[in-house]
Amino acid sequence: MISVKDLHKTFDGQEVLKGISTEIDKGEKVAIIGPSGSGKSTFLRCLNLLEEPTSGEIWFEDQLITDPKTDINKVREHMGMVFQSFNLFANKTVMENITLAPVKLGLMNKDEAREKAMSLLQLVDLVGKADVYPASLSGGQKQRIAILRSLAMNPKVMLFDEPTSALDPEMVGEVLEVIKVLAEDGMTMVIVTHEMGFAREVATRVMFIDEGIIMEEDTPDRIFTSPRSKRLQDFLSKVL
């Protein structure tokens, strides 16, 4: 579904990604782990071109999205993204947050979008919050709504950029729960995370990124029980 070929990214002369190649198939749940500053978030943000790669190719369903001629907005409609800092639209109610994009992009009319939003809100038990502004929500509620906002577009893949890193510990569970349900539903996803337990439980593949390359990737079992590279062993000994 997503195919990445020799991806490089340089920020102000500093090379953050030094050649990443990988394939992500439909239905896969890829967890990306690695030390901070390793380039894992940059890699994720390159997948929907929020970060423009310096060189390399990214294919999404046989479409070369790094080609400047590709309409990236159209591609993004199919790739949901959830951010560490939620980024709910502060000037819109929860309902408007969820319905804005599907309506503006002409995928649904207002009524359809509202209906869809309501059924999504039911899923996470937040129907009562439909008409409030994000400022009055807790972090966990914000992130669950942010996930719904992406889901309202019926994406083919979901990208999660450290979705629980900005949450108070007691709220991590409720967000991971939603992601888990999504995973069980068969959603293709790529998750940058520091939640090793979650990665191990939900992921079908774990990718260890360090110093701008994929150091190691394998099934969660093998990554966590028999890491091969020294860097991964060091990293795991620090976080587990």
């Binding site: 907005n73 790739m79 949901g80 993204m81 800092s85 639209f89 000037n91 994009a101 992009l105």
Partner: peptide, 27 residues
């Protein structure tokens, strides 16, 4: 206005103009 607001808008497939008009300018 927080850069994340624009990124969220763009990540949903909204154009630069739509994001500006609907999200950034009101804030």
């Amino acid at each position: 206005v927080d850069k994340g607001q624009t990124e969220a808008g763009r990540s949903l497939g909204l154009t630069r103009g739509q994001t500006m008009w609907e999200i950034v300018l009101p804030q």
